[in-house]
Design a protein around this nucleic acid. Structure first.
Lengths: 107, 107
DNA sequence: ACTCTCTGTAAGTCGTAGCTTACGGTAAGT
DNA sequence: ACTTACCGTAAGCTACGACTTACAGAGAGT
């Protein structure tokens, strides 16, 4: 059920902005916070949440922490989405082939 | 940015349970609420949110409302995930090919 | 040693999301 | 017409999550 964590974490808009900033490549916290409408500690907290969900990884470089995307963290969410996609299609087909024998009694 | 709505809506666990119940096929509100740990009005509110995000659709059948999954509602989220997936891979490759010319001065 | 930069964490505030109970409205059965 | 089943919405409460300010530690330079 780890895709649930990914969903909860990615639900917040500003946290998604933080995540998006890592899309192009690794960045330090200051660089991420620059341009964002929130304070730097807020960004730190978001990064902590993202890391706990396995969506980013951290690497120390001197006094600064470099964060980067961890792709495997998205895998479960992708799988869940795909399985849902397929099941929904199958359910739809099953529904369409019902031989008009609904509970809706003529009328 | 409609994938943002999908994320916020699917972030809540019980709302995800509601959504999951529609995976197998269409259901009425009572049927969905049965077995869930929350009251029926709560389920109604969740369905309203899901519908607003385009994730489910509603159909009237007598006095009962039949809800079903709307697959297109998941499309944007899937696309976003995939694009993120690809970009993160590219960024990773770019990073790996950096000619050792880091700021990390030998040592 | 001193300082400056970069960062994580603690404490506290405030808005909002999710829940419940209560109510109203509509379709169908008798 | 009356009742019963099914459902949506309003109002209100509560818990939690996102943010800010303040503080502490660790590394690099002088």
């Amino acid at each position: 059920m780890t895709y649930g964590n990914a969903l909860t974490v990615l639900a917040d808009p500003t946290r998604r902005q933080v995540f998006e900033r890592l899309r192009a490549g690794p960045h330090a916290v200051n660089a991420i916070a620059a341009g964002l409408p929130v304070s730097r500690p807020a960004v730190s907290q978001h990064l902590k949440a993202l890391k706990a969900a396995g969506l980013v990884q951290e690497r120390s470089e001197g006094v600064r922490r470099i964060y980067s995307v961890r792709r495997e963290g998205l895998a479960d969410l992708r799988d869940w989405l795909d399985s849902f996609w397929d099941d929904a299609l199958e359910a739809f087909k099953r529904e369409a082939e019902k031989p008009t024998a609904k509970k809706t009694r003529s009328r």
